[in-house]
Every structure is written in structure tokens, then in C-alpha cells.
């Protein structure tokens, strides 16, 4: 036993190869396997029904210091080509130029990284701004607490 340890201790770093193992199943599945529970909320911005989805998780702290919460935005497939952009913002936007985080990526499931203030009073609202291709702007809002997640 002692001899085994004497010779074997210098090969212990081979154990580092075990590190990736627990992450393999998740990596090879097309959709994440171990996901936190989701929160879904439906709102209607004018003629466009929008489903917002987020993980039941506290916002992430970015290296830049701000808190960021990720939302997924689902439109009806028939609306995808009618919608120019979907913006999310905590608090009512003062203008279209400051409508908030623009959702990007897969048009069937766009994602938006929304900046969240450090201090929350609990009365904040999440505003959804939908701009369509004919220039029309449609807005909706819901209480941020309804779709925030994590322990508060």
C-alpha cells in the first residue's frame, strides 16, 4: 500500500481528467438537461401576444458590476416576419430610442439581457416594447416581481 502510494502519488493529476465527465451529458443534449425551473408570463403588446420566459434564478452579476437578467421572448411563428424588434426594460421607456435591451438570436426564441437596478423597491415593472415593420410601436408591462425569480 505504502509502495503503491509512493509511486502513484505523482500520477494523481490524472484525476483532473474526471472534471469534464459530469458536464458531458448536458453538453451533448440539444437542449440543456439540468435547468432551473422556468417562469413564463404572457402579455399582449397591441396585436402581438408575447410569451416571456426566464429561469427562477437571481440576476447574474456581470464583471462590469451591473446585474443582468436573461429573458427569452417567444412570438407566434406567424408574427416573426411582422415584428422588427422586441425591447425589454425595467421601468417605462421615455422614448423608442431608450426602449431597453433588444432581443436577438433565434427568431423563434429571441433572448434579451436586461439590466436590473441594484436596489429594488418591489413595485418595478418590466416593459415590453414591440416595434413592427410598418413603424408601429406597441407596449405592454407586467410587475417585475412576477417574472423575476430567485430568492429576494
Amino acid at each position: 500500500m505504502r509502495k503503491f502510494w509512493q509511486r502513484g502519488k505523482f500520477h494523481l493529476s490524472a484525476l483532473m481528467m474526471l472534471v469534464p465527465l459530469p458536464f458531458l451529458p448536458d453538453y451533448f443534449s440539444p437542449k440543456p438537461i439540468f435547468v432551473p425551473p422556468e417562469i413564463r408570463r404572457d402579455v399582449a403588446a397591441g396585436p402581438f401576444p408575447v410569451t416571456l420566459v426566464t429561469y427562477d434564478q437571481a440576476p447574474r452579476r456581470m464583471p462590469t458590476g451591473e446585474r443582468m437578467k436573461e429573458y427569452h421572448v417567444h412570438l407566434r411563428p406567424t408574427d416573426i416576419d411582422r415584428v422588427r424588434g422586441v425591447f425589454l426594460r425595467v421601468g417605462k421607456p421615455r422614448s423608442l430610442r431608450a426602449a431597453g435591451a433588444l432581443a436577438f438570436g433565434n427568431p423563434y426564441e429571441r433572448e434579451a439581457d436586461v439590466t436590473v437596478p441594484d436596489e429594488l423597491a418591489g413595485t418595478e415593472e418590466l416593459w415590453v416594447t414591440v416595434e413592427d415593420w410598418s413603424g408601429g410601436v406597441h407596449q405592454a408591462s407586467l410587475p417585475l416581481a412576477d417574472i423575476f425569480g430567485g430568492k429576494r
Binding site: 416573426i80 416576419d81 411582422r82 422588427r84 415593420w133 410598418s134
Partner: peptide, 29 residues
């Protein structure tokens, strides 16, 4: 440096198309 919040930066601002340059249409061109 990035995780210490002292990112080196150097990234350029993304190029965006101004809203008034985007055509108005019924559906996405």
C-alpha cells in the same frame, strides 16, 4: 483581468443601422 472587472476593452462599438434608414414594410424585407 476580465473577472477582476479590469477588462482590457478594445472592443469596438457595434455597427448599427439607424432606425430612419430601415425600410418601412408590412413584413420583413
Amino acid at each position: 483581468l476580465f473577472h477582476l472587472g479590469m477588462g482590457l476593452g478594445g472592443g469596438k462599438l457595434p455597427v448599427l443601422i439607424a432606425r430612419d434608414q430601415i425600410p418601412v414594410a408590412a413584413t420583413a424585407p
